[in-house]
Amino acid sequence: MNANAQLEGSSRRRKAAPAMTKAARARHIGLALLALLLALLLFISGARLLLAGIADYQAEAFLGAWSKARVEPDARAWAVAEAAAQRAISLSPVADGERLDRLGRVYSWQHFRQPFAAAHAAESRRSALAAYRASLEVRPTWPYTWAKVAQSKLFLQEFDAEFAHALTQAFAMGPTRILINRELADIGFRAWPHLSAAQRQATLESVRRSVAYSTPEAQNLLNTAKYTNRVGEFCGALEASMISSRKLDACQE
């Protein structure tokens, strides 16, 4: 009986062996398919990031060219830049404050030279403002975007609570950044009649910071002051802070 039992047990083990081999093979196939799926997902993710990077570069190149020339883009160039900025956002795996800010700048440039409150420029300016708002939801401490919100409100001639808040945030978050002070001084002079006393003082502080940075910065702001009839305020800010204005002829008259 023992011998028969041993033979039967051996037979059962031999029959079970192929089944175990099939199970192991199925596991190996499953793992291989999982690895292939993960590799595919990584490839797709990498490809999306690469395409987003190319779109970033394309949109930024247009912005750089427009900024250097200080002219509005032609319709075709603007459309290409806007599509690239939108594509970079759509390809990003998460909300990206920098890309949203870039989209806002593309919209801001579309009618950059048009008059304040121009009806035909309102749509692009509101689109810029929407993009800047979305950007600030992702990175609320970025002063450059706050300054762009204030600029957009200036172009729309909307001197409301959002405008005031944007000025305050940009001023508080970028005290040592020359680009912020330059932007705020420019906005302040252009919006001067609509500013509160505190906002005017903040504008003049941005003027002093910009002038102290370099003579070219001082000359650029002087040009803005002339254009906006704010030369008296400009020169007074320099005198009050004892910043030399010897190289600025308008302040010697």
Rank of each mutant, 00 (worst) to 15 (best):
T21A: 05
S92H: 00
E162M: 05
Q169E: 10
F159H: 05
W192D: 01
Y107T: 09
M1K: 09
E183M: 06
A118W: 02
W146D: 04
T203N: 06
N220D: 13
A250H: 05
A88E: 00
R230S: 07
K15C: 01
A24I: 02
M1T: 09
Q219M: 09
E253W: 04
R25Y: 00
W78A: 07
A119N: 07
Q252Y: 04
A17G: 07
W66K: 08
Q201K: 11
G232V: 11
A19Y: 04
E233D: 11
A19N: 02
A218R: 00
I243A: 08
A202L: 01
A81D: 10
A3Q: 13
D249R: 05
L184K: 00
A85Y: 02
S127T: 11
L51G: 13
L91Y: 05
A16P: 03
Q169P: 03
F62N: 01
A240H: 14
S124H: 03
D101T: 15
T228C: 06
R126A: 11
E137V: 10
L221C: 02
L7S: 06
R14G: 05
P140A: 13
Q114C: 07
K15M: 03
G64D: 11
R200H: 00
R102I: 14
G236P: 03
S10Q: 06
S135C: 09
